[in-house]
Design a protein around this nucleic acid. Structure first.
Lengths: 269, 269
DNA sequence: GCCTAGGTCCCGTAT
DNA sequence: ATACGGGGCCTAGGC
């Protein structure tokens, strides 16, 4: 009785007959469980582009959000896939093959997987509430610069983040110690030519109104020809790594917290 | 006896004891098989960035090329991963947990997966020689334009593909019916502002030497403000979809093949 | 829906 | 090795 109510994180079918597979797959999909199908299949994709994949043994992972990945023996990336939002149709074809069709109505795409043999089906009922934290992203660098503007230079006062411009977005915008506008473009990796052009676009637009506008790239390093390019375009570079930013941010937070606790100490007097 | 030599595409362990797992995983990795581990795990990533993922039930796929993906219940993308090139270390820790460490020497990155419970291990010995073909990429469009230059306009003669410029690459370069240089930028989706700026860079460089240089964007459609932008920069647009290109290319190929077979017919006379 | 820009992007290719 | 640009990129955020 308890076993009836108890969740099983995995249910396994070993070498199921093709004609039995829809009976396994359909209920799992409607119960919004994830499915793993390992077998000999071929795949046709049609949508933004088209592709065909001939017969071979692969692993197919279908998730409850309607995403699909087809993995081959090697390679980090799936050979075929669909992002979330698919509806599924599983059936046995007239020729006896198992067909799984994933259709994405939003972008009129379809993935057509045909199996001529299935080695394993795993129904997955996974519980996963674990938090995910990512450090040292460009977003972290931006936060650090806003919290500690002296990372850029003394006297810098940021006024806006993610400033929307007709020519695009600006990461951080502010005024330098002399009151001149300073546009900051942040990169967490080596600066490429393209990033410089991106900044140049923003800056040249703003220099039309005020030739004193400065543009600065913040990054851990510069790509090959980018130093010269920056000079030509009268843009600046300040070396700053994600790690440095993170440390500055954490230090600033500690300072703020201790200031806060002091206030509490004082108020509790 | 036959069973000893026969390959099994999948070998399954149901709820293996943690301490047994290294005995399963290590030989599989050294035999260069792929592995699927489903269980309750936590993950720490450290490298270009850092991340932590708290306990939860997930699916881990380790391939023989040294790539890893960790999939949660939902989402197309893995929550943690490593591209090919990892070496693996599996062990039971002093606290009794199973630890799988993937280290990428080339970029000094590491993925540290700890399991406190394993539901399923699948050893995968997949045979997959199926060919993969992708149609209608930007590359296909380029090929089509070079094979059928009239797709651009009558009298166009391409002279170079992938022309290297100090300012970057040019998709297709050639001369129009009047002998004026024509720079072609191909996009397979709607044209964005950035693509226009990219083309503008090439063209303005070349117009310094010859003001008659033309620049043209080839794409199935234009993004919002891009028509006006093209006009301002004196650039042109020709609508052409990947599908049209593909059809033209296939037609051209058929024509060429039939011409070839005619030649054979003639020579066999 | 479209547009914009980041990503531990990954990937191939050329230098 | 690094640099560059594509990708069925995907994803998040804004409009």
């Amino acid at each position: 009785m308890n076993s009836l109510t108890e969740r099983s994180p995995v249910s396994v079918w070993n070498f199921p007959k093709l004609e039995k597979c829809p009976e396994i797959l359909k209920p799992a999909i409607s119960r919004r469980l994830a499915l793993l199908i390992i077998g000999d299949c071929s795949v046709v994709y049609s949508g933004r582009a088209s592709s065909t994949l001939d017969w071979g043994e692969r692993l197919v992972l279908v998730k409850s959000d309607g995403s699909v990945v087809v993995h081959r023996r090697e390679g980090y990336e799936p050979v075929n896939w669909q992002p979330p939002g698919c509806i599924f149709d599983t059936s046995i074809q007239p020729d006896g093959l198992l067909r799984i069709r994933a259709i994405r109505p939003s972008s009129r795409e379809s993935l057509d997987i045909r199996f001529r043999g299935v080695f394993l089906i795993v129904e997955l009922n996974l519980i996963d509430r674990g938090g995910f934290l990512l450090y040292a992203s460009e977003e972290d660098m931006k936060r650090a610069i806003v919290a500690c503007p002296s990372l850029i230079e003394d006297g810098f006062r940021p006024t806006m983040e993610e400033k929307r411009q007709p020519s695009g977005f600006i990461d951080v915008f502010g005024l330098d110690r002399n009151g001149n506008p300073l546009i900051v473009e942040i990169k967490k990796g080596p600066v490429r030519r393209e990033a410089v052009f991106q900044l140049a676009r923003y800056v040249s637009k703003m220099r039309e109104g005020n030739p004193e506008v400065r543009g600065m790239v913040i990054a851990p390093s510069l790509g090959k020809g980018t130093m010269k390019l920056l000079e030509t375009l009268k843009l600046e570079f300040r070396q700053l790594s994600p790690k440095t930013c993170l440390e500055a941010l954490q230090k600033e937070r500690r300072t703020r917290e201790s200031a806060l606790s002091h206030r509490f100490d004082a108020s509790s007097d």
